[in-house]
Amino acid sequence: MAETSDGRVWLITGTSSGLGRALAEAVVARGDRLVAAVRRPETNDDLVAEAPDRVKVVRTDVTSTKDVHEVVEAAAQGFGRIDAVVNNAGFGLLGGVEEATEDQIRSQLEVNTFGVFNVTRAVLPVLRAQRSGHIFMISSVAGQFGAPGLAWYDASKFALEGFSEALAAEVRPIGAKVTIIEPGNFRTKWAGDSMVMAAARIGDYAPSIDPVRALFSGLNGNQPGDPAKAAQTIIRMLDEPEPPLRLVLGGDALELIRQKLARQTAELDKWESVTFSTDFDKA
């Protein structure tokens, strides 16, 4: 039985599996309305069957501005408003900077970064007109912490973080909010079937990259994060009057980010005198 809800409208990209799918299920169970933007609509047939009056599934490639504008229009026209936008579509590319092909690199950035830009730009006029709305950016611990073998994935998420931080300040006057979600390792297909492997392997990089490959191989299916719990947490953030700009999900992610910030602070302190030495001398 669906929970009581005010029937808010969610636009979620990438709902075929993983966190996007878990969130889509939670939104429908809550009684809210869902517009699912997904490359394979048939993966969401069960959600449509469960709530045909509250679920719209639109075949969407987030790298296509035409597709993106069509799904935003389907949400705004079909349900009259958009309360939450979840930029979730994305994938991981594992391999060294030299090991990935140009096509693989461009695909990584087109989906994870430019796809988010496309959706956000298309939805902003709707949020501006209604003077409300909450944009959730599904980033990653990789948006804060760079790891060997994930340079291109990290680049896509670091770009998303800076974009989102600036966007949050821009949209505040129109009543819209932005929250960057930074998950750690969650039990999804990200490290398994959804992971794209770089086309080549260069032996010189084995000492730095092979341990990362082994880590993900061993972790797949045993990740500590629960997607269903993450979905409920994101829904909760929509109810928060003052949600955080960044929300870390998972104890593993929190520990990695804290370690990175401690190293960064120590490095700033160590080189502080050099930093100040580049200023003009005081008169």
Rank of each mutant, 00 (worst) to 15 (best):
G95K: 04
V116D: 07
T13R: 01
A253P: 00
Q259D: 15
G133N: 01
L11H: 04
A283D: 14
E42D: 14
D67G: 07
A200L: 13
N118Q: 09
R39F: 08
R54E: 02
L47P: 03
L11P: 01
V178C: 03
M197H: 13
T278S: 12
K270Q: 14
G18P: 08
V38M: 05
A142P: 06
A166F: 00
S277H: 04
K157G: 00
T101M: 05
L215N: 11
V248N: 03
V111N: 07
K177M: 13
I257T: 03
A169G: 13
R258M: 12
P41E: 09
A75G: 09
S17H: 10
R8H: 11
D193I: 08
T13V: 10
A206M: 01
V28Q: 00
I234A: 04
M137E: 06
V68I: 04
D226R: 09
G162M: 11
V97F: 15
G192I: 05
A228H: 12
F136L: 14
A49D: 15
I12R: 01
A84Q: 09
K177I: 06
S17N: 12
A129F: 08
L19H: 06
F186T: 03
R187L: 10
F163T: 01
A155Y: 11
I181S: 03
P207F: 07
E98K: 07
I135E: 03
P52Q: 09
A228V: 15
A100Q: 01
A176G: 05
S140W: 07
T275A: 13
T4C: 00
L23Q: 05
F136C: 02
A24D: 03
D61I: 10
A147P: 06
I105V: 15
V171C: 05
Y153N: 04
G92R: 01
F145I: 15
L23H: 01
L261K: 12
G143C: 04
M195D: 06
G96I: 05
T113A: 13
I234W: 04
V71E: 00
L245W: 09
V86P: 06
V62I: 15
T13Y: 08
E255V: 14
N112K: 10
